[in-house]
């Protein structure tokens, strides 16, 4: 009996040690990957330099392949400015048109203050997320695709969602895929809609100057912009993270 108790203690101690070691290993594997090292300094754009063709024989990565340091890429975007600053940089003469736009949420009407009225506004992608009664999530994706015969058509894709929030493709009958009607889409729209994302192609006209690009609306708010006008590109990841290119 005493021997059995000792043996049990050893086993329990062993389980405890394994648990501690495993926990330590788990937390180490969950830490974010180190960022790349020195990449920006090495890759200077616009230098026009022509490198020779790469050698034909690829070399395997060395065992001491560098994994980067903490001084390079940050996961927080840098180099963005506010929309008003980016607009001033791109089109100094138009920045007054922003007026009270600065520091406020965007919508397309406000963009029209800057680029003129829209002459074309076309949806090219619509994504809807639904929560079902059992708590699971479904995602409906409608996007303009083009077949071999050059004709554009809406195409339906449908997804479940796994525990990591990643899409799981779900089968869709072939007859539902192309140009589905509202009636066809109805069963895919079951549940509570929790997110709507629309990608719009826009063309603006201002005194015969055409501007064009895309905006992404999330739940009705413009969140992402890429609009080209007069040789410049305004890119916004959100209204206060913009850049002029």
């Amino acid at each position: 009996m005493a021997a059995k108790r000792s043996y049990s203690k050893v086993i329990l101690t062993g389980i405890g040690l394994v648990a501690v070691l495993g926990f330590l290993n788990f937390t180490r594997s969950q830490s974010p990957a180190p960022a790349a090292s020195g990449t920006l300094a090495q890759l200077s754009p616009e230098n026009g330099a022509q490198s020779s063709s790469p050698s034909a024989t690829p070399q395997p990565l060395p065992k001491d392949f560098p994994v980067g340091n903490d001084e390079s890429f940050s996961h927080l975007p840098t180099g963005f400015s506010t929309m008003s600053d980016a607009v001033k940089q791109c089109w100094p003469k138009r920045s007054d048109a922003l007026g009270s736009l600065a520091d406020q949420a965007l919508d397309i009407n406000r963009l029209e203050h800057l680029f003129g009225p829209t002459s074309t506004r076309e949806s090219v992608e619509e994504i809807e997320h639904y929560r079902l009664a059992d708590g699971s999530e479904r995602r409906l994706v409608l996007s303009i695709e083009e077949g071999e015969d050059n004709k554009s058509q809406w195409q339906l894709r449908f997804f479940g969602v796994d525990a990591e929030g990643l899409p799981i493709p779900m089968p869709v009958p072939e007859s539902h895929v192309k140009n589905p009607s509202a009636a066809t889409l109805a069963p895919y729209r079951e549940g509570e809609r929790i997110r709507t994302l629309r990608r719009l192609a826009l063309v603006f006209n201002l005194n015969q100057l055409r501007s064009a690009g895309t905006v992404t609306e999330v739940d009705g708010r413009v969140e992402e912009i890429q609009i080209r006008s007069d040789g410049r590109l305004l890119h916004c990841a959100s209204f206060d993270r913009c850049e002029c290119l």
Binding site: N25, A33, G38, T39, L43, P54, S55, L61, F65, G68
Partner: peptide, 28 residues
Amino acid sequence: AFAGQAEAQVWNESGTWNQQAEDTYAQW
């Protein structure tokens, strides 16, 4: 269970896409 957590990826990465990696990718 904990051994599984250590392998919880399609593959474990040990490097990053620096210039050398991009060069080797191009050669490959």
